[in-house]
Design a protein around this nucleic acid. Structure first.
Length: 460
RNA sequence: GGCGGUGUAGCCGAGUGGCUCAGGCAAGGGUCUGCAAAACCCUGGACGCGGGUUCAAUUCCCGCCACCGCCUCCA
C-alpha cells in the first residue's frame, strides 16, 4: 500500500512518489534564534522528526535539512537591546534550541545551514531573478520580487492575486518603495549600524525568504521531495520561497507539509502574543517523553493544547508503556520481532498521512494483548507483542525505560540495597520494617513493585 | 472583508453511512496482592444547533451558531 501525505498545494492527500526511488530529501524551516524556544518549536520539531524516522523505518534513505535563521530584524533588535552582537545573540539561542531538541530526542538534521553562511548563494539567486525579470532594484532601498511576474503566485495559500492585493491593501502598511503591496524584499539595504554584506545592489542583508530557497536548493538540489514547517509559514514565507526558486528556473519542493500550531486556551501560542511556555519549562515539568507522547496522540495537522493537563495525561500514558517493559523484563521474557499483524496495522495508520494517533492506538492495543498473553502464560504471543511495542515506539522516537534506569551507578546500588533489605524483611514477614523501607524508597522517588519473580523498582 | 479549519463522552483525542469496540487520561465496581504498584475483567456516558437525503447519519447535503488559523514577524 502506498504512503499518502497531505500536500498543502493539492489540498488533499496524495501518494508520495519520490524524486528518486528509495530516497527522500526533505527541508524543514527551523527557528529564527532571537529568544528561547517555546513548546510550539518543540511540537514542530517533533512532528518532522517523527516523519523523518518513519520514512526511514519505511526503508527510505532520508536526507534531512533544517535551517537556522541567524540574521534577521529581531536578532538585530535583541542585540541592540542587550548590548550584545548579532552573532552572540544567535549563538546563544541556537544553543538553547538544540539543547532542548536533544532532550526531546529529536535527531539532529544531516545539515543545519545558517543564513549568514549562504549570502553568496542568495545573491546569485537574486541576480538570476533580476535577469529573468522577476525582480527589480530600487536604489537605496534594496531588491524586490515582482509578484505579478510569477503566474502561479498564490497556489500555496490558495488565493488569487486579486484576493492577495485586496487584503494587502486593506490591512498592511505598504512599503512605498515597492511597486505593489504584495511584492517582497529579496535584499534590504543596510541602515547605519546594522550588519551588512556587500552586494551589487549596495551593502545590505538578505530578505528573510531568500535564504530557504538558496539553502534548500544548494543542499538538496532541484525538485527535492518534502518541504515542511509550521503552518504559519505557509504564507507568505513558503509561497515566497517557491516563487523565488521557480522564478529562477529551478524545480522546487514536490510536497508541502505544514504542522498545526500549539494553542493556549484556544489561542495560538506565539511570542508576539506573549502567551508562550518555554520548552525547557515544559520538559522539566513533565519529561521529554511525555511531550513526545502528547504530540503523537494528536494529528500533526490539528491545533492542540500542550499545557499541564495534556502533558500530565501523556506522562501517564508513557508509564503504561514502561510498565509493560518492566513486566516483560521481570518475567525474563525474550523479546521477539514484532507481531506482523500489529506491524501491518501500524504501517497502514502511518501511511495515511502520518496518522500517529491511530498508530499509537495500534501500539496500545498491542500493550493490552501483551499483558493478556502474559496473564495466560503464552510466552510466544507475549514476546511478539512486546516486540511490536518496543519496535514501533522506537520507530516513532519514543524510548521505553526498563526497570532500574537510574543512570547513576551509586544511586542504583543504594536503591538495590534498600530493595534487598525490604525483600528480606518481607520474607521474614516483618512487614513493619518492609513498609518503613518502602517509605524510604518512596521518599527517594522510587517505586517498588513486587512481582512473582521478585521486586522490581523504577523511578516515580 | 477574503481563504481555510474546528466543534465527539469528566478531560485529551481518532474515526466511520448500519456491524462488539478507536486509543490515552480520569471515575465507579470486581479479581489478584501482607501493604502497594502493575495488570486483567466489568460499568456508565458522544458525536454544536436546525432542516434535508436515506430503510438507516455522528458520518453525505443545506442553513445557522460558536471558536480558531492565515491574509503582518512568528514553529
Amino acid at each position: 500500500m502506498a504512503l499518502r501525505l497531505y500536500d498543502t498545494i493539492a489540498r488533499d492527500k496524495v501518494e508520495l512518489v519520490p524524486r528518486s526511488a528509495d530516497r527522500i530529501a526533505m527541508y524543514v524551516c527551523g527557528p529564527t534564534v532571537y529568544d528561547v524556544p517555546h513548546v510550539g518549536h518543540g511540537r514542530t520539531a517533533t512532528t518532522f522528526d517523527v516523519i523523518r524516522r518513519y520514512l526511514e523505518w519505511r526503508g527510505f534513505a532520508v536526507t534531512y535539512v533544517s535551517n537556522v535563521t541567524d540574521i534577521e530584524d529581531k536578532i538585530i533588535a535583541r542585540a541592540a537591546a542587550t548590548g550584545s552582537t548579532e552573532p552572540e545573540v544567535a549563538a546563544r539561542f541556537e544553543a538553547a534550541y538544540w539543547e532542548q531538541l536533544d532532550r526531546l530526542g529529536v535527531r539532529r538534521p544531516d545539515h543545519v545551514p545558517h543564513a549568514t553562511e549562504y549570502v553568496d548563494s542568495m545573491q546569485r539567486l537574486i541576480a538570476t531573478l533580476i535577469e529573468r525579470g522577476h525582480a527589480y532594484v530600487v536604489d537605496g532601498q534594496g531588491v524586490y520580487y515582482d509578484v505579478t511576474s510569477f503566474p502561479s503566485y498564490g497556489a500555496l495559500p490558495h488565493r488569487s492575486l486579486a484576493q492577495l492585493l485586496e487584503s494587502a491593501g486593506a490591512r498592511v502598511d505598504v512599503d512605498t518603495a515597492k511597486r505593489s503591496p504584495v511584492d517582497f524584499a529579496l535584499w534590504k539595504a543596510a541602515k547605519p549600524g546594522e550588519p551588512a554584506w556587500p552586494s551589487p545592489w549596495g551593502d545590505g542583508r538578505p530578505g528573510w525568504h531568500i535564504e530557504c530557497s538558496a539553502m534548500s536548493l544548494d543542499l538538496l538540489g532541484p525538485g527535492f521531495d518534502i518541504h515542511g514547517g509550521g503552518d504559519d509559514l505557509a504564507f507568505p514565507h513558503h509561497e515566497n520561497e517557491r516563487a523565488q526558486a521557480e522564478g529562477a528556473g529551478h524545480a522546487f519542493a514536490r510536497y508541502w507539509l505544514h504542522s498545526a500550531m500549539v494553542q493556549v486556551r484556544g489561542e495560538k501560542m506565539s511570542k508576539s502574543l506573549g502567551n508562550f511556555t518555554t520548552l525547557t519549562g515544559a520538559l522539566d515539568a513533565h519529561g521529554p517523553r511525555a511531550f513526545r507522547m502528547a504530540v503523537l496522540q494528536t494529528h500533526y495537522r490539528r491545533a492542540m493544547e500542550l499545557g499541564d493537563a495534556e502533558l500530565g495525561a501523556a506522562a501517564a500514558a508513557v508509564d503504561r508503556l514502561d510498565a509493560l517493559v518492566r513486566r516483560a523484563q521481570a518475567t525474563g521474557l525474550e523479546v521477539a520481532p514484532g507481531d506482523p499483524g500489529v506491524v501491518a496495522r501500524f504501517r497502514d495508520a502511518m501511511d495515511d498521512d502520518f496518522s500517529t494517533p491511530a498508530a499509537m492506538a495500534v501500539i496500545f492495543d498491542a500493550v493490552s494483548a501483551a499483558h493478556q498473553a502474559l496473564d495466560d502464560r503464552d510466552a510466544a504471543r507475549a514476546s511478539v507483542m512486546v516486540g511490536a511495542v518496543c519496535e514501533l515506539t522506537d520507530a516513532l522516537g519514543l524510548t521505553l525505560a526498563a526497570a532500574g534506569t537510574g543512570g547513576d551507578a551509586g544511586f542504583d546500588a543504594e536503591i538495590d540495597d534498600l530493595v534487598a533489605r525490604r525483600e528480606a524483611a518481607r520474607t521474614a514477614r516483618d512487614f513493619a520494617t518492609a513498609d518503613a523501607l518502602r517509605a524510604e524508597l518512596t521518599a527517594r522517588g522510587v517505586v517498588v513493585e513486587d512481582t512473582p519473580t521478585g521486586p522490581v523498582w523504577h523511578r516515580a
